[in-house]
Nucleic acid binder design. Sequence first.
RNA 1: GCCCCCUUAGCUCAGUAGGAUAGAGCACAGGAUUCCUAAUCCUGGUGCCAGAGGUUCGAAUCCUCUAGGGGGCACCA
Length: 544
Amino acid sequence: MIDELIYSAVAGYGLTSDEIEIEVPKHEGLGDLSTPVAMALAKKLKKAPRQIATELITHFDGVSAFKKVEVAGPGFINFWLNDDFLYSELKRLYDENKGYLRKNQGKGKRVQVEFVSANPTGPLHLGHGRGAALGNALSNLLQAAGYAVEREFYVNDAGKQIFNLGLSVYARYQSILGNDMEFPDDGYRGEYITELAEDIINKEGRTFLNSTFESVKDFFIDYSYKKMLNEIKEDLSAFGVNFDSWQSERELFQLQVVEQTIADLKSRDSLKEDAGALWFKASDFGDEKDRVIIKSDGQYTYFASDISYHHQKLKRGFQELINIWGADHHGYIPRMKAVIKAMGYAPDMLNVLLVQMVSLLRGGKPVSMSKRAGEFVTLKEVVNEIGSDIAKFIFLTRRADSHLSFDLEVVKKSSAENPVFYVQYAYARINSIFNKALQNGWQLQSFGNVNLSLLKLPEELRIIKKLLFYPLLFISAVRLREPHRITFYLQELCGLFHPYYNSVRVLVEEQQLASARLFLCSCIKLVIEECTNILGVSVPEERM
RNA sequence: GCCCCCUUAGCUCAGUAGGAUAGAGCACAGGAUUCCUAAUCCUGGUGCCAGAGGUUCGAAUCCUCUAGGGGGCACCA
């Protein structure tokens, strides 16, 4: 690999490869690759950066990969690659495929990615979809980088929200059957509550008409949340997002995990009693104040089971915990980190990625999304309307931590607003070239002695470099835990392919040249597949 | 009041382990199809990187303050 050549040259200066930045310069006149490492070393060595750079480049004398190595600007080292080197690397890319494209940064490290984890008190909304798309892509990305990834959905099937759900359905049930009762203030009001109530009427009739909620609550609660959870599973599955495990909150109580965690914290002297409640001394571990675990009425807070959930995650042996949360939970991070610290683990084992709000427009007008009021756009509706590929791609063309707004009408109507088509179309075109080639009697074995040095056009060399530099991009996407970088790369790659397709014919008369170009197309196809697999977006085999 | 995030072209957004002349798509205008898919391509220009200070060889990127937008500050979940 190219980066390794550079690493080895600088090795004598006591830098690890992590500290050596390699970048693709913004302008072509500045070389194919570049490193500012001499400038980084300047402080350390107390020497002028250009002087260091001038020394460094002597290491590249006679390295056949480089056509030219130059010191430029304040001390950049710019590299121009030999065409022959590009061709042989491209062959390696084709032969080794994923082995070439991926870098094993994880080395088997066990990472859990917990995402979505929506309360099963209603359907998934669009914001959940963003979390789902991100969690899914991030998991794929880390997996590709050699991490042992487990995807988990935490099911809040205990506590007050579930209770409210059951109560809401109960109230609706009663009122549909003519028993007028006041609807609970903090109840859920969506249409789906009525559907649940009607469901129960269809199955059980008027059985519960004169029962108090207390006497039938288990039935109403369990029926309702299980049904909602099922719908959530179906919606996610339709969205193309799957989990390895679903951790039930209830189970944590039943298996006494919560008690054990509290006992553990007690033994570490991290708890205190005050005003009849049990507190976690979060302020000892960097949080701004202490937090209640058991209320003075004896009830556990939500925080209690969350603590034990994370405790259990750590005990399960994960070396890194990634939580994808809505940005409205950001205030929760310090206390969770405090818990990790209190339990004797490094707080940076917990990595919380915040996903900002999604605001949805329809024809320029905002669509409101309040769950309680029952007016929200569900993930399902959006997926039905625009498809999961478009939805995912839009979510993944933004940084997680930036507010996102998109307009359903715009996204639907104007295909140009859907960059995913641009990518899919490139893929379909490549397939189409191959179909045509096969019809013409061309055979795959032709790659055996393909002569890549026929790929001399500037467009071709540009594409080859783009392909070969994918691993650099991959590394930084993994390091930063930012799948959206893959999305942008993909658009750039296709942005090179389409013009090429338009101006250069692949299946030319001259067999050797056609073969070389087909080879190039094959490599583009491999990389598109790799990227879209990570993003969780489909690519069409055939005509679009 | 305190805390977190955001502010980059008309719009939607990239670019931040400090690096060279800050990018893309859309929108707008004109053009391209005897030929592997026109959901494509080509040609047009746009920036007080919200503002002001600071740190240094170098700042959209780091620090401080200000303004605007969003979110959070429960013995709720």
